[in-house]
Design a protein around this nucleic acid. Structure first.
Lengths: 332, 332
DNA sequence: CTGAAAGCGCTAACAT
DNA sequence: ATGTTAGCGCTTTCAG
């Protein structure tokens, strides 16, 4: 397996310089005479020399690779975040090792350890919930970590999010103003910090302020969870809901439509994390439009600073969201 | 930046063996006495030793990392393929470096060269079209490459696909049997081998066999392309179409629905690469259901064999597809 | 501005 | 079964 035909040494010999000089040329070090540089560059081109990034990584202790930890690959929410990350990573010449943690073949801390063993320069963690094992693994390392779309109360990892409390309150107000009386909140994991510390408190405060009854549904993760939940919502008399998952919100919507319910007249739905899917269903879903691309991009940008030991003014960035009215709420 | 606290050398000293023995233990080499192994393992655990994968990679010339080249991150078609790849990669303990080529900041061959410089052990390329520059880059290297969901006629790279010709013919027959008279084919890139060598020929043969008029639309890539195409379809008198992109098929569907057309009575749609999105829209789309997860999984499995120089009986695997009738064609 | 030399942490013959 | 010894290809002082 003679992958590497031509090494830095070959270039050095051919250009009649030392490998140190070739290394300088490759790395854009300015301490090289113009003529020398040009001679080396000519040889590099002629020999089709390409630096071995693994050797560079070992010698320099920087791999220009970051790890991405994502709960599911086939979820547009994470895909849109990832795209923001990817674009900025490309800009700063980092590669991305992506690892999903949905497969139970390997525990989450093992996945993270595997990433750290590969000497990634940094990690971006996306998920509604920072699990204990992940937190443990992260705090054992000096590798910088940024949370995208999640917060953590215990360990204060850098994060990029929106203001969930404010967003949900605004969405609840929309339902209230549309005349809905029994407002529900549909969540995935109730333990997730975003839910337990932000969304649920916002919901309860709202209920208290308006003297309303609580209709909290947890453990609703995907399309079919949402679809199956719908009859229960109706039985409970709920007429307006905020759904934190995009797929589950579409499940609920389709269950409503398929059962002949009138949306939004009888039943209103607001999705709290809109992806493309929210706008292609009919009726299109009114949504809290999180700037997913930007969250990813800002998180990655922050990570580049952390990896370079640059000053980072604010380690907890909240980006603006937008409440976009579509057809699943009364439009006026 | 003293990331690596404890090295193989520390373990060796502490366990009073040579680093070679520690290496053997770490790599599961059987040539180690049981007691020695246990002593070393105890030290490894006590010192929290973790092997540096970069150093392993440099010394062994194997990085247990594969590169994934995907046209778009935010497209469920590729996400579902990726999930199949990811699961098998995890099983065989490979990490994945994912690179999208939608960002024009870097040319495709540069992206590929970057992957090769990182010494990936193999590459999986997904896209309807293997571009010239990609093909050039691949043929310069000895690193194995597998195409997932694409074929190539020039260079005969290993591939995993379905039989597009057969699938499209079957879909066209369905439209015909539903009484549709003017059948259209809506594509993205007409130059893509899958289209130029498989889908278009299948379409033309079908038209010839049934003495029908051609309605071929190319350059239709995303949702809005599809949405905007609809009026033209109607003007052209098309009453049944096969759409190769899932997002564009939904665009066409919504344009039809929004304009009050009756689907499937007046207009039938079959999507030729169904993802989750095809089943959540209403009416749900009749689809050629490609086994995307399996295509990814089989491609990755094939790649593991290639990377280990194992025998691969068939380098061009075609997996079975399924024509799933939903609501965008007449159901009977 | 350039070169010499010492590693980075590990694997893989080759000995013993 | 275990140790010794070269590297893998590159970066990075340190000299000059």
């Amino acid at each position: 397996m003679h992958k590497q035909e031509v090494t830095i040494y070959d270039v050095a010999r051919e250009a009649k310089v030392s490998m140190a000089t070739v290394s300088r040329v490759v790395n854009g070090n300015s301490n090289v005479r113009k003529e020398t540089r040009e001679r080396v560059e000519e040889v590099i081109k002629r020999l089709h020399y390409q630096p071995n990034a693994v050797a560079q990584g070992l010698a320099s202790k920087r791999t220009t690779t970051v790890g991405l930890i994502v709960p599911e690959l086939t979820n547009l929410y994470f895909a849109e975040l990832s795209k923001g990350i990817d674009d900025i990573a490309l800009l700063y010449k980092y590669n991305i090792i992506i690892t999903s943690i949905e497969n139970r073949l390997m525990k989450e801390d093992q996945v993270i350890q595997g990433l750290l063993n590969k000497q990634v320069d940094g990690v971006i963690y996306m998920s509604n919930k920072l699990t204990d094992e992940a937190a443990e693994a992260f705090k054992r390392t000096s590798t910088p970590v940024v949370l995208a779309g999640t917060k953590d109360n215990r360990l204060d990892f850098p994060s990029v999010t929106i203001n969930y409390h404010k967003a949900d309150t605004e969405a609840l107000n929309l339902l209230l103003n549309d005349g809905k009386k029994n407002l529900g909140l549909v969540l995935g994991d109730a333990e997730a910090v975003v839910n337990s510390e932000h969304r649920i408190p916002a919901y309860r405060e709202f209920l208290a302020d308006h003297d309303m009854e609580e209709h909290l549904y947890t453990g609703v993760y995907d399309y079919s969870d949402g679809y199956n939940l719908y009859p229960k919502l109706i039985k409970d008399g709920v007429d307006g809901i905020i759904v934190t998952g995009d797929n589950s919100s579409v499940g609920i919507l389709n269950a409503a439509v398929d059962s002949g319910a009138k949306v939004p007249e009888d039943f209103e739905i607001i999705t709290a994390s809109a992806t493309q899917i929210a706008s292609v269903v009919r009726p299109a879903l009114t949504a809290v439009k999180q700037p997913l691309y930007d969250i990813g991009a800002v998180a990655m940008r922050m990570l580049t600073k952390l990896m370079n030991n640059e000053e980072v003014e604010d380690l907890h960035i909240e980006l603006p969201y937008e409440l976009v009215k579509k057809q699943s709420t009364i439009n006026r």
